[in-house]
Design a protein around this nucleic acid. Structure first.
Lengths: 253, 253
DNA sequence: AAACCGAAGTTGTATGGCCAACACCTCGTT
DNA sequence: AACGAGGTGTTGGCCATACAACTTCGGTTT
């Protein structure tokens, strides 16, 4: 169990203080020097902590004045965005899930490119339905490359959190790229989500990679609209959000 | 014209080198020490540059080994995400736009909260239709608080880029928070976008703030689906993306 | 052949320092 | 009252150093 570095612990404390309105929205944070003294660390360490808050959009920062608290920002950690089950629990819902179908297939074009595997390789395709407190919420089509698939395959179909299982198995997720757009439900979507064919769904395509940059999964999640939204923060300091133009018959479907 | 700091220039060079496949996808970057020597700067400066690439998802980084190039990542800068016109031009389309309606109104609940203004204050509401190379693409409902609205109001209705005009006027955007979900077209959407009432649209609600944390605009953009997608990168290092649960009759409409 | 060990290389964490750029306030001048 | 100059406080940029934690690889032992 590696101890959290100091700058992360300090960031956590500041995050909590902000959440409790210790400085109020629009209020000013103490200066870096003051914080350094309070926590008995150097200014550099304080700056590292504040960087985290800045990237999450909790505070601004500009030369000359103290940092300003932006808002009670909707910050979750990486793990919560990564795992449907964890997210569901954090909003007070009961997550549930069931594998509808799974099996090994030769990788198609998109899978080869997304998972960076050779033409011959196999992938494990899993079709999974996710519930929020009993109601269908999302249909998930995930492709796992050989090594990860071998871990996922034997899991019982009603495993609530595959992500959490993989973590315990030593599979660490470090990066994820999400593409969000809109699609119309096909027959399979309609059947399992309980909507009509052609009904609009919010689609999130996601590729996750491990700390070494090796792709771990490629997934296409389709959410019933009305109860889900994606929130992104970007700033001059970091611009993780981009708009994408697709030609009418865009591949990578 | 302030000179770009060194770490940003170095990041730009590395970005370009990666784009030209100088290290190849899955390849390894030179060590921090080697880069520091090459650019004749300290390791700290190199690390600042590499942080930028890491947040954008171009490279991984973990203790013990050299950084790995993740992919030709879809990176645009903040300005391109911020301005519809700039984005359109960057993908080779001709942006166009026209104000359909605009006028001052007392701020409603959502506007008061989003723009952090007092109950009595006025906002300038602008309804704007955006075209991509002649075809309707997006309908934009923006609310500007008093000072910004006063700058926007006198603009000619066919101003292509309001954002670029505001920049020249000294209005700087530093932060933006985006909420992406799905809505069905109302009568007004249908009329101007040329779709049917009830057709699904991709909605992006956006609040931008200046470097001091003062809200500059609150906008609700509705995109015709099929040609637009939002791409987000997140990682252990920074988690700007969150999932949000909305109660059926969520306010903040 | 497999497992273990250790050395070398690399990134992460933290300290300390210095100056520049900028915001903000005060005070004095106009 | 309006304006401008200057001083103070604060963050940004950059440097140098030291050690810790980790990966990788080669060699050794089992």
């Amino acid at each position: 169990m590696p101890a959290e570095p100091r700058y992360r612990r300090i960031a956590e404390e500041l995050r909590q203080a902000i959440a409790e309105h210790a400085y109020g929205p629009g209020g000013r944070l103490p200066s870096e020097g003051a914080l350094a003294e309070r926590y008995a660390v150097s200014r550099g360490t304080i700056r590292q902590a504040l960087m985290l808050l800045r990237h999450d959009g909790l505070v601004t920062s500009r030369r000359g004045t103290r940092r300003v608290v932006l808002d009670d920002a909707p910050v979750q950690d990486f793990a919560q965005m990564q795992s449907f089950a964890r997210w569901a629990r954090s909003i007070g819902e009961v997550p549930d899930g069931a594998v509808i179908r799974q099996g090994w297939h030769p990788a198609d074009d998109a899978e080869q490119r997304q998972l960076r595997i050779t033409p011959g390789a196999r992938v494990l395709r899993v079709l999974r339905l996710r519930h929020l407190s009993g109601r269908p919420a999302m249909l998930e089509r995930t492709s796992y490359p050989e090594p990860v698939g071998a871990i996922v395959e034997p899991l019982p179909p009603d495993t609530v959190s595959v992500t959490e299982f993989l973590e315990r198995g030593g599979v660490a997720v470090a990066d994820a790229e999400h593409t969000i757009d809109l699609v119309l439900a096909d027959a399979e979507d309609a059947e399992h989500l309980g909507c009509a064919v052609g009904d609009p769904l919010l689609r999130e395509r996601r590729r996750t990679t491990d700390p070494a940059g090796v792709p771990l999964e490629w997934s296409q999640d389709r959410y019933l609209p009305g109860s889900i939204a994606f929130v992104v923060h970007n700033s001059l300091a970091s611009t993780p959000l981009t708009r994408h133009h697709m030609v009418p018959d865009g591949r990578d479907g």
